[in-house]
Structure formats: C-alpha cells, structure tokens
C-alpha cells in the first residue's frame, strides 16, 4: 500500500477539527441572530402612502398619542386615525401640500387611507392595548421613541420571550400611570427604574400572568 497520504496530512485532522468548530460556532451565532425576530422584525420601516412625521407632530406640535390613536385606553385595538381626524387640521394647515395628496383623495372619495401596518402579532396571540396602557406600561416600552421618529419603524422583536421579559419582571418597565403617554419621561430625581418599578408593582398590585392561556386563549 505504502502511504496513502503524505506526512503533511498528519496535521490535517487537527485543522479540520478547528475548522468545524469555527463553522459550528458561526452557524449557531448566525442562526441565533439572523433567524430570530431580533433581526427579522426589528427595523422594518415600510413606505407609507403619506410620509407622516411623528416627531413633527408629537415633539414639534405637542400632540398627545391619544389625539390620533384615540381608543387605545378603551379598546384592545389601538386605532389608526381616520381621515376626518387628520382633516380637522389639514383642511386649513398645509391644505395644498403635495405630500397630502392621498389624504385629500380619501377625503373626497370616502375610501380610507391604505396605511401599511408595521406591528402585527400572530393570530394565536391575544393582545389588549387598554390592559397595558392602563397598568403603567408606556407606549415607549413596545414602540420605542416614536416621538422622535420621522418614519415609524419596528422597534422591538415582539417575540414571546420578549413579552415574558416584562410579564415576569414588570418592575423594570412600569411607570406612573400619568406618564404612560409621555414618551421621553424618565424617573425624576435620579431614582432607578427598578426601585420605582418595585414600588409601583406593590402599590398598584401589578401581577401580569405568565400562564399560557393569558395570551393563547
């Protein structure tokens, strides 16, 4: 037979093992990042029919979230404003802006504006906006700094473990009820969120469920 491989081949097994380890580590890391909502959902920024600028309306003009999303405190579904809501100002303000063409068309025809949906939960998940914003969960916790966004994008993963982070540890996220819609708010006087949160959780008896049937009903 003589030797089938040269002397140099004796180094090969070690190199192959190292190579396999590197590839395996990269694969695991790659799947853990690229195949999870952290990557697949966060950052989704669709083009909307009207280039609506949240930072202009909220930070610049001082509108409250509930001015447009008017039923978020009463309904499970946070509504997108109707054309009438927009037109209550825009009949006078910037009434001829070319950016608002789609709005005016909707006003004339009666067909709603076809906004592209950014946040969407699967059908097997039950979610109620009112249950959250009435218990000290700010818009900010899920939607991020919308008050500063020129175009709205998907801020958080909305994965189940992400939901459970708060359901199991509400003290890291809850804030005083009157500050829920104040997106830029921070605990005053250098108080840490965890301490304040712990106090609020006790005072308000915030006990989020982590039963399966809380969301999968």
């Amino acid at each position: 037979m003589a030797n089938l491989f040269g002397k140099a081949a004796n180094e090969l097994p070690r190199k192959i093992v190292v190579g396999i380890l590197i590839i395996a580590a990269l694969t695991v890391a790659g799947i853990a990042y690229y195949f999870t909502p952290k990557y697949t959902r966060v950052g989704y920024m669709p083009k909307q029919p009207i280039p609506f600028d949240h930072s202009l309306h909220v930070t610049g003009l001082g509108l409250d979230c509930r001015f447009c999303h008017s039923f978020v405190e009463k309904s499970g579904f946070s509504n997108v404003p109707t054309t009438q809501t927009c037109m209550s100002c825009h009949r006078m303000v910037k009434a001829d802006s070319p950016k608002l063409a789609a709005l005016r068309e909707s006003w004339e025809t009666g067909e709603p504006v076809r906004w592209t949906r950014v946040y969407q939960l699967p059908d097997y998940v039950y979610f109620d906006h009112s249950a959250h914003v009435n218990r000290g969960v700010s818009c900010f916790s899920c939607h991020g700094e919308v008050n500063l966004m020129r175009t709205v994008y998907h801020k958080t993963p909305l994965s189940m473990s992400w939901c459970l982070d708060c359901h199991r540890n509400p003290e890291y996220f809850v804030r005083p009820q009157e500050k829920v819609f104040d997106l830029g708010w921070e605990p005053p006087g250098g108080e840490r969120q965890a301490e304040m949160g712990k106090r609020l959780v006790e005072q308000e008896k915030i006990q989020p469920s982590d039963n399966c049937s809380a969301c999968h009903r």
Partner: peptide
C-alpha cells in the same frame, strides 16, 4: 488516531 500518514506503512508487507 486519526493518523493519515504512518511510516510503518512504508513497509509494503505490513501495509498489505
């Protein structure tokens, strides 16, 4: 092991 190359295989009789 694994050992792709081993000098004993230079001896044909042994390697057969």
């Amino acid at each position: 092991l694994p050992r792709p190359h081993h000098p004993v295989w230079n001896w044909g009789e042994l390697s057969r």
